[in-house]
Design a binder for these strands. Structure first.
Lengths: 330, 330
DNA sequence: CTGAAAGCGCTTACAG
DNA sequence: CTGAAAGCGCTTACAG
């Protein structure tokens, strides 16, 4: 039922090669022929099939963005960056959600093996260096975002520095008992931010109190939810020793935490992490990650690598920046 | 460089047909042969190419979700629903962002012509009935979400009812001067919600005052941003006649609006629309749209339609539900 | 500027 | 249970 290149060629009285040339903007087609073919194709609702083109040309003209389901708010900004870079290229972008429960590495490897795209942008997948090493055998362009590696181009945050900066700020203000309100403790960004937190404490000769490393009980999305933030803050407010300040590892968790404070009628200075678009409006002091910009960079890396596979590996590490609003100031 | 089915067949000493059968879980392959092939394929990093499979089998085993860039928060819930339905099917899901500036219809038509997937889920695309009619010629399974049509399966909200319910509630509480704080006034959901607003006013014999239909100046994402909400509320607070209450057409705009009230030191009862996950935590009274559930339904429609193209058209219209929290209660 | 033909990497009746 | 072969809808040297 759907039209093929043969139908168009027949209707136009030319060979399929000519039809193909029209759609591949080869300039060696007579203008009148081109117009005729385009007109017929439009009438018949024809456009070359992506799969047949991909197979024949070995070029997909598409890149694929792999991202875990959990990163939504965060992800929107990155996506904007990617799309802005792609806007003038003739490249399709498809997004594939990776399910954290089903083996991230397996899913990534499967996609690559199936050769869905010319290149892959891996966002917040947090594969181990060993796993990344394994992906090299496929010799396919890969660009990492929110992960660091020597195997592939990457754009990442200095999460340790972020944790350090936030904690240091609170210490400088004279706070001593500082809670680390985190997501799933084993998650990679959490571990890195913890490092920075510890480093700052160390500089102030404050010993680490494991009881001040708190998360909630809801662990979907690695605990990066409002609900988890609310739960964690409820625990904090029930602590025996009163707490001076809070470093919370995500804005979305902070939304829950602030609600808990409100419900309990308490106020504790808080700095969180991300700078989502809502954060400005709800007055969150937070560590800003330039996600839009990083989306642009990682995409550019990928495009460059597709054009030039032998290029030397690029590796940007961004230093997070502290934005002070009212949640930390009283 | 990448391995093909021939490489595997050679290495295993069988024909390519047998290798193909193994990967298509045909049961007519001897168990020892199957294991041998699987082992070799794993060692050589082989999996059938998606494009070649798609071309040869005329089945893509994939569906594509088309969604405008703007709908992010909103979209997350829908996506969760879609993925939960797909989880046990052996079907890939890819997401394609539609750029509102580049002709929504053209982009959709192009994707369909190129035959990227077995079926398409069109989310919040707001194509006209005429445009939808045109898509029928491609005889491809299409399911609409957040749009209503007689041409395709659809799952939508009763936006008029939503606007009516919210406005009626405010009127019942004794408010008279009720502002409609909207996004781009021409956007379809806005127009529908306006209808409901007018209907409620009508019941109270309150004439419509065009000056109370207000939006901000920032029009990215059709004005569905915190910024636009902030701008609009700033205008409202400068109005000569004081205002009694506000019906705001999205939660994200309400975030901006609440900030503006805060900055100006005023409080005006407000009901918004969506019930995002943050809304519970910031105390927004809002119209709840069951997005997760609708994502499930629309996906099921699509899968059914793929299996059975002649099925009678399904058409769910959900009635929004008002959730009262503190933003409307004082 | 155009066409004939080989080939891309698979699937799938058909035959055995 | 397995193989030989046709075919899916394109692209792209090659030749003219």
């Amino acid at each position: 039922m759907p039209k093929t290149i043969y139908d168009i060629a027949n209707a136009a009285g030319v060979s399929i090669a000519t039809v193909s040339r029209v759609f591949n903007s080869s300039n060696s087609v007579k203008e009148t022929t081109r117009e005729k073919i385009l007109k017929i194709a439009d009438e018949m609702g024809y456009h070359p099939q992506a799969y047949a083109q991909g197979l024949a040309s070995k070029k997909k003209n598409s890149i694929m963005l792999l991202v875990p389901v959990m990163s939504n708010y965060f992800f929107t900004e990155i996506l904007r960056g990617t799309q802005d870079i792609l806007t003038d290229e003739n490249i399709e972008l498809t997004i594939l959600n990776i399910n954290q429960e089903k083996g991230v590495f397996r899913q990534v490897e499967q996609v690559i093996k199936r050769q869905w795209a010319d290149g892959y942008l891996l966002v917040s997948l947090h594969l181990s260096q060993q796993e990344l090493q394994k992906l090299k055998r496929y010799k396919v362009p890969i660009s990492l975002l929110d992960d660091h590696s020597t195997h592939f181009d990457s754009v990442s945050f200095n999460n340790e520095q972020g944790g350090y900066t936030a904690t240091k700020y609170l210490l400088n203000k004279g706070h001593k008992q500082i809670v680390l309100l985190s997501g799933r403790k084993e998650s990679i960004p959490n571990k890195e931010r913890l490092k920075g937190y510890l480093k700052a404490l160390g500089e102030y000769k404050i010993p680490f109190d494991e009881n001040l490393h708190i998360t909630g009980d809801s662990m979907d999305r690695d605990g990066f939810t409002e609900k988890n933030g609310y739960e964690a803050m409820s625990k904090i407010l029930k602590l025996e020793k009163p707490v001076d300040a809070i470093f919370c590892t995500s804005d979305i968790k902070a939304v829950g935490a602030l609600k808990a404070m409100d419900d309990f009628g308490k106020k504790i200075p808080l700095i969180s992490y991300d700078n989502l678009s809502i954060s400005e409006y709800i007055g969150l002091s937070t560590i800003f990650q330039p996600m839009y910009k990083m989306g642009c960079q990682a995409t550019r890396h990928l495009l460059n690598r597709i054009d030039n596979p032998e290029m030397i590996i690029c590796d940007h590490i961004h230093n997070p920046e502290l934005i002070i609003r009212k949640s930390s100031e009283f």
